[in-house]
Amino acid sequence: MSLTLADIDRLAHLARLGLQPEERTRLCSQLNDFFGIVEKMRAVDTSGVVPLAHPVDVSGDMALRLRDDVASEPNQRDANQQSAPAVESGLFLVPKVIE
């Protein structure tokens, strides 16, 4: 299996990355090089192995810690928006969204 420029365009769009033409071709060959070393991994027999999503969950009994339902965050709109590119009357502005 080898990635084509069409695959690169599909992925770039999914990831919202505007790529320059030469970037497309460079990435295409670099990704194909990378997936070359991945082939070895695909060949490994992993039947019956439980995926490890959390590194310390070796015993498989790791449980999500829950917090009590308390609303305690103060309004920090100004501090939170200090690095926002475009704000008007407290709203983040973006180009018109058409549904």
């Binding site: 991994m41 995926p51 490890l52």
Partner: peptide, 25 residues
Amino acid sequence: MIGTYVLSHGYYDAYYLQAQKIRRM
């Protein structure tokens, strides 16, 4: 790009899930 690819439809099991299994090993 790599991450988007290995999570994308049709490749998740072959790449991401397989990697998580070998991670356990």
